[in-house]
């Protein structure tokens, strides 16, 4: 691990300013992803701004009947919150489908959204990776791509977003609240937080340098039955090959987002009008723009079948 200096500011605005002031500075919250990457020298921050004293560690009801989740709320706290379990089951289910108990106890809400891809070529510093070293190429294309993206990728990067939580937040139409280094705040719809790679896969979000996620807000509950169905190579503690986050109402209408297939949670609102017609109609629209590799073409029928399973459960 490269040497760095370390500070613990007392407010979100101070933290944002501290990161902007020092080139090479980074926020650290739970640290479960950042420290892993620092040990491998994939991340090499020169200064760490520890967020644990800035507040932002509570879950509060909003005036609109929703929920405001402080960025430092841990994955465990969020999944265990009574209102999340009652009103936003898809979120609780998605969180506990990811990582391990130890990691969920440390991983935070904001950190989960900003975790890096687990593409094996991003992790292997001997390999070309446009995300890690812009312009170096993509060894994943033509390489071992079974886990990687089938849609939303580019000629420069086929990495997936590894988060389960983000897929549920996408289905719930969450918004992300931030503060910028000049102290101004803004809100970003979850759909607009993650970027598609295009020719700049190293830029993964629409956040500005030093911009800090302060909270994630859920709109008022939409009812329905909540599902998070994750398909992976072992029963626990593995990343998704395909996951389906869904909220389905009694009349068969609802919402669906797919994880494990794209550089961001994949949702096509227009496809949801076809939910009463069944899984194939929805999956065909959702995945219409897919460009799979030979290794990961299996994900397309897997999306349809996983969605069919969820829809069957919703009827049962």
């Amino acid at each position: 691990m490269r040497a760095f200096t370390y500070e613990r500011p007392k407010s979100p605005a101070e933290a944002a300013a501290a990161v902007e002031r020092r080139p090479g500075a980074k926020f650290i919250a739970g640290g479960t992803n950042l420290l892993d990457l620092m040990k491998l020298e994939i991340e090499t921050p020169t200064h760490l701004v520890d967020l644990q004293d800035v507040g932002l560690d509570r879950i509060e009801d909003t005036a609109e009947g929703g929920l405001r989740i402080g960025t430092l709320v841990t994955n465990t706290q969020l999944a265990a919150h009574p209102r999340v379990r009652r009103d936003y089951g898809v979120l609780a289910r998605a969180i506990v489908a990811g990582a391990s108990g130890q990691l969920r106890n440390k991983a935070t809400t904001g950190g989960n959204l900003l975790q890096r891809t687990r593409c094996p070529y991003f992790y292997d510093t001997n390999q070309a990776c446009n995300k890690r070293t812009p312009g170096s190429g993509c060894a994943a294309i033509g390489g071992y791509s079974r886990q990687l993206a089938v849609i939303g990728a580019s000629a420069g990067c086929i990495a997936t977003n590894p988060s389960d939580m983000a897929v549920a937040l996408r289905v719930l139409d969450a918004t992300v609240e931030t503060v910028r280094p000049d102290g101004t705040a803004r809100t970003i719809p979850i759909a607009d937080l993650h970027r598609l790679p295009g020719t700049t896969p190293q830029i993964e979000t629409t956040l500005e340098p030093g911009e800090l996620i302060t909270a994630v807000t859920l709109p008022r509950p939409i009812g329905g039955r909540h599902f998070y169905q994750k398909v992976r190579d072992r029963a626990s503690y593995a990343f998704a090959l395909v996951s389906v986050a869904a909220v389905i109402h009694e009349n068969g209408s609802g919402r669906v987002a797919i994880g494990g297939v794209a550089p961001k949670p994949w949702r096509v609102e227009a496809a949801e009008a076809d939910m009463p017609k069944g899984a194939k109609a929805v999956a065909d629209q959702l995945m219409a723009a897919a460009r799979p590799t030979d290794d990961n073409a299996f994900k397309l029928p897997l999306v349809e079948r996983t969605l069919a399973l969820v829809m069957t459960q919703a009827r049962g």
Binding site: I28, G30, G31, L35, D36, S100, G101, Q102, K106
Partner: peptide, 25 residues
């Protein structure tokens, strides 16, 4: 790297991977 759990300890009663957290935190 937080994958095996051999380093699990309790911090304020909560289990975490002690390999993926800095002592100064």
């Amino acid at each position: 790297h937080g994958q095996c759990g051999a380093c699990t300890v309790l911090v304020d009663g909560v289990r975490i991977n002690s390999c993926l957290t800095l002592a100064v935190m």
